[in-house]
């Protein structure tokens, strides 16, 4: 069992949930980070990190 795959999947899943939250939350309760929707920005970061972990695990396999 490659732990990188599990970490990747978890980050990917949480990242996608944050992106969904960013799309569904009303604009009035959105928190911004330097003008960017925080849920959206961080969701994308986590999806990218998750994909990176999964790619590394697949390459090692």
């Amino acid at each position: 069992m490659d732990l990188r795959l599990i970490i990747g999947r978890l980050l990917l899943a949480i990242g996608l949930l944050l992106i969904v939250a960013a799309k569904l939350a009303p604009a009035t309760i959105r928190t911004t980070l330097y003008g960017t929707n925080l849920n959206l920005a961080w969701g994308i970061v986590l999806v990218a990190c998750g994909a990176l972990f999964m790619t590394t695990a697949r390459k090692a396999k």
């Binding site: 949930l17 960013a22 928190t31």
Partner: peptide, 13 residues
């Protein structure tokens, strides 16, 4: 104070 729904879930998790 600073996290909206979603990020709040991540912080608590």
């Amino acid at each position: 104070t600073f996290f909206p729904a979603g990020m709040l879930g991540l912080g608590l998790t």
